[in-house]
Design a protein around this nucleic acid. Structure first.
Length: 253
DNA sequence: ATGCCACACCTTGTGTGA
């Protein structure tokens, strides 16, 4: 089973890239973030023609998440239960015996800002909800754009901002792994300076000035079947790329 | 200190992203 996450930064703009990439990589399950369009504007027919079912939780201009799957998608949940959120950031579903949670975590803008407080509240709500989800679904994946670089090695040494690397954010990430979730990427030896996002500005991709903020966290029964996990930088060199690269994990039976 | 880029919007600048 091959599962991927990709912040496409506008589904409409990135659709040609997405269709090419689906045909090439043939993932079984894909979580997308930053659709930046409402459900009614999602190019469903193109994605279905590529062989995928899809469930979306869209929003105009900002946010928006989706789950694509070659197998049937059941028990869809939009947003975090009990957390009133005007922003479309979470979609969860059951595919086979795997519970998949796809999320676009808040950016937080700046440590100490109102948006940062929202980020931490959102993280707390997510963590409390997932505690029960993991108990109910032994095979669970939490994936998406976390907007957190969990360790120093996940940020370029020249990253000077606090946001994405601050102690409160990293503690929130640790609370998620504390639920029994494993960072699939770190389950394997990886090249130094492996990142999944590079600023569009300042030739950041060419200089590899990036952050590893897109993650695939898996529960123990799934971690036991992990075969590989990597960042797919091939999409970042195309014309009009997303600023994020997909992260792909492969599981055995 | 800002813009550097990209995207969306009842666009012609502004908000947001990370």
């Amino acid at each position: 089973m091959k599962l991927a996450t990709w912040n496409v930064n506008s589904l409409k703009v990135r659709l040609p890239h997405l269709l090419d990439w689906l045909a090439r990589e043939q993932p079984d399950i894909v979580c997308l973030q930053e659709l930046k369009c409402e459900d009614a504007s999602v190019p469903r027919a193109d994605i279905e023609a590529a062989g995928y079912r899809l469930e979306t939780h869209g929003q105009k201009t900002y946010n928006g998440v989706a789950i694509l799957s070659r197998a049937p998608i059941d028990a869809v949940q939009r947003n975090i239960p009990g957390f009133a959120d005007p922003q479309a950031r979470v979609i969860a579903a059951t595919i086979g015996d795997v519970r998949v949670v796809g999320a676009y975590f808040p950016n937080g803008q700046a440590v100490g800002s109102e948006k940062f407080a929202y980020k931490l509240e959102w993280l707390t709500a997510l963590t409390e909800w997932l505690r029960g989800e993991i108990a109910a679904h032994p095979k669970l994946v939490l994936t998406g754009d976390f907007n957190i670089a969990p360790e120093n090695r996940d940020a370029h040494p020249d990253w000077k901002e606090e946001i994405h690397v601050s102690a409160p954010e990293r503690e929130a990430f640790a609370a998620l792994t504390g639920l029994g979730l494993v960072d699939a990427f770190r389950n394997f030896d990886q090249p130094e300076k492996s990142f999944s996002w590079w600023d569009y500005r300042m030739n950041a991709f060419r200089r590899n000035f990036g952050l590893r903020i897109d993650h695939i966290l898996v529960s123990a029964p799934l971690a036991a079947t992990l075969e590989q996990c990597s960042v797919d930088k091939s999409t970042r060199v195309l014309e009009r790329p997303s600023d994020h690269a997909p992260v792909i994990a492969v599981f055995g039976s």
